[in-house]
Design a protein around this nucleic acid. Structure first.
Lengths: 212, 212
DNA sequence: TTACAAACATGAGTAATCCTCACATTTGCA
DNA sequence: TGCAAATGTGAGGATTACTCATGTTTGTAA
């Protein structure tokens, strides 16, 4: 990221800014986010300029900063929406799983969905690519990953009631993070190899989840 | 404007700059890299300012740009050194492996070394954190990872001569990338959980490498 | 209806930083 | 010794995130 005017090492998770209370401004904020999303899809979030976002949204640069403390906050807001959406999806896919076969199928489907999403959505790809560099985004991703791992832990506790809970927790979290890494890797190579890598990840992860 | 065709050994992805030919300037370039390294260790590469690097190295800002096309090129140069070093280490650890037990031990040691290195070296940590965001660094990491995976493939072919070579290739590459992701994850949580995650990764990876 | 405070909108201006370039100095060598 | 190429310099151009003084709109209570 650019970080030109950033003060050194201020973590700064979502600094306080006015949140829109009137209908009019709520709509404007939506337009800002939509504009940002479109620009990120076109050029990536690094190349996204605050001036462009304002222009595309049909607002002044000042209005942008009325609701977002800085550039990263816009990306963060978009990221938060994606995580909320996918958590609902993951929760739905895993809560009903009762046996090993069910886990195998649900997990495989989830990985496929995630892979497809990354292939199809340039904004998502861009946002989670920068994850490592941005402190706030990294926190969001870790929290999200832990939450998702919890759904897996619930399933595992049902399937293997005698296993060490801490061990299960560790395994689920690792498997989840490996999945995100595998998908990010897969989309950065050619399609054929990407497919192979995702398939290999599935095998590796399921072996770990089912037979310890 | 010097359009003189640079030496063919400039395999660097982006380096349209003079490379030092005199003893004096070679020493100055070393000082620049040392200064950059120190500043990255202190504040991270985002917060590193080109002016600071020049000042700390005792050269002018112009001299800095004489040898590095831009800021990222400095980070890239440091990254390249680390990869060259670690490749030698990895090659040495894996070339003599002859059986499953040997692989298990060598792999485990390599993971430990890598983990310790990331824990101890703030510069390495910082550089490879930004990997996702920087195109050139990502290329370097992928190339490095493929090269390292090749050492693993050589071992696997010896241990499992009948296995599908493409499959082995995929597995080795995936395992290697998962390892990098696992270590990066491990250092971003508290030490105790990090140790558990690295141990879990080892188990998962070895199971995949040894028994397909 | 009107008065008024709070929310909202504006965009020229500020500050920080990357990088260039015209010119000065040093080095290797014929 | 002369000179071209390599190296050194730092003020200034260019870009861009972000601020703030000032103007406008909105909800609401008298």
């Amino acid at each position: 990221m650019d970080e030109r005017t950033a003060k050194p090492d201020q973590a700064a998770i979502a600094s306080p800014r006015r949140s829109p209370s009137q209908q009019r401004s709520r709509e404007r904020v939506e337009r800002m986010l939509a504009a940002a999303s479109a620009l990120i899809a076109e050029q990536g979030s690094d190349a996204m300029r605050m001036g462009e976002v304002a222009e595309k949204a049909g607002v002044s640069i000042g209005s942008l900063y009325q609701f977002f403390p800085d550039k990263r906050a816009i990306v963060w807001a978009l990221a938060e929406r994606y995580t909320a959406e996918s958590q609902a999806c993951i929760s739905a896919a895993l809560t009903d799983v009762g046996d090993a076969g069910g886990l195998k199928q649900a997990f495989s489907e989830l990985v496929d969905i995630y892979y497809q999403l990354f292939l199809a959505e340039p904004v998502m790809r861009d946002i989670w690519s920068g994850t490592q560099a941005d402190k706030a985004l990294r926190e969001l991703e870790l929290a999200d990953s832990r939450a998702n791992a919890e759904f897996l832990v619930a399933v595992l506790k049902r399937l293997r009631p005698d296993a060490d809970p801490v061990q299960l927790e560790t395994t689920a979290f690792l498997v989840w993070q490996m999945g995100e890494a595998a998908v990010r890797l897969a989309i950065s190579v050619d399609r054929e190899e990407g497919d192979r890598l995702v398939a290999a990840y599935k095998g590796m992860a399921l072996r770990e989840l089912l037979a310890e």
